[in-house]
Design a protein around this nucleic acid. Sequence first.
DNA 1: CGAGTTTGACCTGCGC
DNA 2: GCGCAGGTCAAACTCG
Length: 202
Amino acid sequence: MDNNYSMLFPCPPSSSSTSSYQISISNNNNDNSNQQHGFITGLNNNNNGQSSNNSAFLDLKFHEQQLKRSEEDQEEEEEERINVSDHHQLGGGSSSSSNKKKGEKKIRKPRYAFQTRSQVDILDDGYRWRKYGQKAVKNNKFPRSYYRCTHQGCNVKKQVQRLTKDEGVVVTTYEGVHTHPIEKTTDNFEHILSQMQIYTPF
DNA sequence: CGAGTTTGACCTGCGC
DNA sequence: GCGCAGGTCAAACTCG
């Protein structure tokens, strides 16, 4: 937790600026509960081609998820990334367990979540994702979708879920860090992010 | 025909 | 140990 937020998207020096954004990240140690601060506002992303009626988000809200992760985990992540190249094989449900030795603590990458106000669930962030699952989630009438980056060797995953409370809000959770550059260079999410100004209120 | 989606089954972790 | 919920797999399917 603390304040180790990593940027998941490469942010090239902004080229042209059609709009300006602000993002504030709240490192809320006091637990998820209040996400009252930490907004990205003023996005007028008009269509990134992802979907026909893509009048995407107007408010973005960053928040870190539940995970009680810290530097320790970051190290583990490093380790895993190294191992991944060795045996990154998504064997069947049963074989997935063979992926890690018995008794070994399950290693989980840090996850980063942010909320977007959007009509569409899928934000075009420039990477190519393959959906590998969808689950109904308790206390939420909207299913959660699971995506994996299709780039070879890149093990980044993301989950997308719409809030029941506020149907306009989509929560996207990223797990892992891309090991490759963005694949599509449209004026998309990456572009938007490149425009963001990040500051921490604390 | 390749890439991506759907969806039911299966696995795993966790709380009781 | 059991049941539940989250997460993943993989076959079948759709789409361009």
